[in-house]
Design a protein around this nucleic acid. Structure first.
Length: 504
RNA sequence: GCUCCUGUGGUGUAGUCCGGCUAAGCAUACUGCCCUCUCAAGGCAGUGAUCCCGGGUUCAAAUCCCGGCGGGAGCACCA
């Protein structure tokens, strides 16, 4: 009412610029069409998972949105953790996701550059070589104390740097950023820039033994790679100050750094610390076990890349902590695979059903209710299997329809379920159940992935295996085919006698 | 403990920077109807949010200010 009063008296006060509904990710600051460069910088230290997918998709979407470029860069500066197979696995995962990058590189290929920058840092006095032991350093950082090394002069630092490259053993010396030991931000209390690692690098073997740490490598790489907008997860937020400080001292161009929340599903941890033991102890079958949030596992399970992309974008670009809803992913996936999933009948926990007066020998059924995916013929002899679940609810006298064939009336439940055909007319009101012909039934197992962890505890029942029978047509399908078992759910054919339950 | 981030229906988000158009849009979940020889997909409708709480500023606040509270993260020679 106050508003209406305003409208009549001072309409000019109410003219606001139009708010438009935004489509896709939020706009970026300082983003020029055609000039945006983003980067996806995984460390090749494990198999790619949903978290990688989120990062890569966001990186790519922004590059696309602004007609810019995406750089795919392996941040491989810790030979202790990296392995060749992980480089490959991550690349495979990215390709599967359909993320297209404009350039691929390894941070480790820029070691000469990184060394030059390190020397520049030392020469200009912005960094020093510290030979204190780990405990002292950590104690000093906590107590805001500088150590003796930080007062060392240029000659000392130059000499020590040389010794790091040649003599010192791992742990004996590190290059530290001259930050501020009194900073509220603990990251700034003279953080490590480079350290010695003697381990052989998967690509460069023993060529280098002084390796940059994350902050040093990333800031330099992002800058020289021409990255304009660098996205990383929230836990790096406190490192922004360091990132900018490094580039500042080096007088290098500064990208914009933005953070987003990590993506993890409830009860589906992504961390190597948790996953590795599961694989080693055989609690899961491998990194492609369908219960896992790895890309390989999702692929096996029947989740398609387009669904992951839609899902990730539906989460938007935010810093708020989210417990991602797996059911939303499933819903996107279902809509995508439904039009191409062939329909088949399945009987889980099968129970026999005899139709006494069967008069058919064969029936032809469409492979899909809407799309033309052809038809299949099924031989019939009056002996069927139906799913245990359906069997349980049957009583003598019940009338049900065996889908696509005829209506039957139950005449006997024990010892076997028996029935008579009543008629052939489709009756909307009676229950309709699927069946499998017993003479040609194909035995399969259905792997049903459930939540892996319940309250931080490994769920011993996280994988249910159901025995089932299906139609012979199953045998003609390729491994990898997505099937919708009518009235049961979507499954992906994983092998000749095994399917994985995708979702309902 | 210190520092930083975050808080919109069951869930995920839009809107928050630049206060009014919308007492809150979309998706998902749920319910019902239509379609359908599936409990799928598709169509339609509905349920569901005092926008964490308490103050303040203002004609007007989810949006601005102050103070609480809840949740998360960082405090490595890992990224």
């Amino acid at each position: 009412m106050q508003k209406s009063e305003l409208e009549t008296k001072f309409p000019e006060l109410l003219t606001v610029k139009p708010k438009q509904d935004r489509v896709g990710l939020p706009l970026l600051d300082d983003a020029e069409q055609g000039k945006v460069v983003t980067r996806f910088p995984p460390e090749p230290n494990g198999y790619p998972h949903i978290g990688h997918a989120k990062a890569a998709i966001i990186d790519e979407e922004y590059a696309r949105m602004y007609g810019g470029k995406l750089i795919f860069r392996f941040d491989d500066t810790n030979p202790e953790k990296e392995r060749l197979e992980y480089y490959a696995a991550i690349k495979v995962g990215l390709d599967w996701l359909g993320v297209k990058y404009d350039h691929i590189k390894n941070t480790s290929d820029d070691m000469e550059l990184i060394y030059r920058k390190a020397e520049e840092f030392i020469q200009s006095g912005y960094a020093y070589v510290c030979t204190c032991n780990k405990e002292t350093i950590s104690k000093n950082r906590r107590e805001m104390l500088s150590c003796k090394c930080s007062f060392g002069d240029l000659t000392q630092n130059t000499k020590r740097w040389k010794d790091m490259l040649e003599k010192y053993k791992p742990g004996e010396a590190i290059v530290r950023f001259r930050g501020n030991m009194h900073s509220e931000n603990t990251v700034m209390r003279d953080p490590t820039l480079l350290r010695i690692i003697d381990e052989s690098h998967p690509i460069h073997k023993n060529k280098y033994r002084v390796w940059p740490n994350y902050d040093f490598a990333v800031s330099i790489e992002d800058s020289v790679d021409g990255v304009t907008h660098a996205f990383r997860t929230k836990e790096y937020e406190l490192r922004n100050e360091l990132y900018y400080a490094i580039l500042d001292k080096l007088q290098m161009r500064k990208p914009r750094v933005l953070e987003f929340s990590r993506l993890e599903f409830d009860g589906m941890p992504v961390s190597k610390r948790i996953l590795k033991p599961l694989v080693q102890e055989g609690k899961v079958s491998g990194y492609d076990d369908p219960r896992l949030p790895t890309l390989e596992a999702m692929r096996r399970r029947g989740i398609v890349p387009e669904a992951i992309r839609k899902f990730v974008l539906s989460l938007s670009f935010t810093k708020s902590d989210t417990l991602a809803p797996f059911e939303t992913l499933e819903s996107f996936n279902r809509k995508i695979i439904d039009p191409t999933s062939m329909r088949l009948f399945i009987a889980t926990d099968p129970v026999k059903l005899i139709v006494k007066n069967n008069n058919l020998t064969e029936v032809e059924i469409s492979n899909h209710p809407q799309k033309d995916m052809g038809k299949r013929k099924i031989r019939i002899d009056g002996s069927f299997y139906i799913s245990g679940n359906d069997a349980k609810s049957l009583k003598v006298g019940d009338e049900v329809r065996l889908l696509e064939i005829y209506n039957i009336k139950i005449t006997k439940i024990v010892p076997n379920i028996e029935a008579d055909i009543t008629d052939n007319n489709f009756k909307p009101e009676i229950p309709k159940i699927q069946w499998v012909p017993s003479q040609d039934a194909v035995k399969i197992e259905v792997l049903i992935p459930k939540i892996l962890f319940v309250n931080e505890q490994f769920n011993e029942n996280s994988l249910e295996i159901k025995q089932a029978l299906t139609e012979p047509y199953y045998l003609e399908l390729n491994v990898g085919a997505e099937i919708q078992f009518v009235r049961y759910g979507y499954c992906r054919k994983d092998s000749a006698n095994q399917v994985i339950y995708t979702h309902k």
